[in-house]
């Protein structure tokens, strides 16, 4: 099974039970299933990215895991507890960075962090948090005057303030500039090396590839593929496309073994040369688009 890949040395040292365990999750809105039989396992200490287009059910899934949305069917365990019935002790072990901003505009960064520190038994110190998210120069600034990216960073700081065992991040880098995104990635790597389990949603492929131990592709409320980023869509990626030009007309063929195709082409060529000859394999993006059904799946044979 693809869902049991070893996430790293930290997870093996902790309890064996997965941090997140989901079977047959269903959520309907007005009779339409937005999550439709989703299965998911995230190991302790693993960084897992849920990748998918808008409306695929990522946010709904993560909100059910956070225990703020009721499910219609299926089995869910987060840290061994059903989130729908969980109490404060469980909440203290969970960190959430949601899409909502959720902070009073009139408070400064330091004030809001100091205030919410009081909700945790052992909060991370405010100075450590602002350094980790790169907001040192903004500690005295009111939230209403922060940029969108800075607010996202503050949200991340608030999400990890209570030293959670599992962190859920729903599109954490939306609105961040490239520098802030890279800073955020460092933060996630830091959490990972602490042994924190991270489940994040994103629609950035590079982010999933950069951060995640494994990527789950969600389409129409189901997990259509789970693999380490380098192995995502392995079958689809085996399919190479050979392009060339014949009598001034672009030609192409899809095949799992381009070698024989090339040999035939070269053998048939008059000058021992084939104009415009290329062999391409699908990029991560091509694979992703096929997995989520944005483009029709490729099959072997001549191209139209």
């Amino acid at each position: 099974m693809t869902t049991t890949a070893t996430p790293g040395p930290v997870a093996t040292a902790t309890r064996t039970e997965p941090a997140v365990h989901v079977r047959g999750l269903v959520k309907r809105y007005g009779g339409r299933a937005v999550v439709d039989g989703l299965d998911l396992d995230v190991g302790r200490g693993e960084v897992f990215a849920l990748l998918g287009p808008n409306g695929a059910g990522k946010t709904t899934t993560i909100e059910i895991l956070e225990g703020v949305r009721q499910r219609d069917d299926g089995e869910v365990r987060v840290l061994g507890v059903d989130p729908a019935r969980a109490g404060r002790e469980w909440r203290a072990r969970i960190g959430v960075v949601s899409q909502a901003e959720g902070a009073a505009q009139e408070l400064t960064v330091r004030e809001i962090l100091d205030h919410f520190a009081g909700y945790h038994a052992t909060p991370r110190p405010t100075g450590e948090l602002v350094a980790a998210v790169g907001l040192e120069e903004k500690v005295g600034t009111r939230i209403g005057r922060l940029s969108g990216g800075q607010r996202r960073r503050l949200a991340v700081a608030l999400g990890v303030q209570g030293r959670p065992e599992v962190v859920f991040l729903d599109e954490p880098t939306t609105g961040m500039d490239p520098v802030a995104r890279r800073q955020f990635w460092e933060l996630i790597r830091g959490l990972r090396s602490d042994g924190t389990t991270v489940l994040l949603t994103t629609h950035y492929l590079d982010e999933a590839a950069e951060l995640a131990d494994r990527v789950g592709v969600v389409a129409e409320g189901r997990l259509v593929e789970v693999a380490p980023p380098g192995e995502l869509g392995a079958e689809l990626r085996r399919l190479a496309t050979v392009h060339w030009i014949e009598d001034g007309v672009a030609r192409g063929v899809r095949t799992e073994s381009p070698g024989p195709v090339l040999r035939d082409l070269l053998a048939a060529s008059v000058h021992g040369d084939v104009p415009g000859l290329t062999v391409t394999r699908p990029t991560l993006e091509d694979v992703y688009l096929q997995l989520v059904g944005a483009v029709p799946a490729a099959s072997e044979g001549a191209l139209r």
Partner: peptide, 21 residues
């Protein structure tokens, strides 16, 4: 940052949070 906590104390009481609020 420090490692993940496994044995954590109980969260602050409702009264303490009320005062902060």
């Amino acid at each position: 940052m420090t490692a993940v906590l496994t044995d954590r104390p109980a969260p602050p009481s409702a009264a303490r949070i009320a005062l902060a609020r």
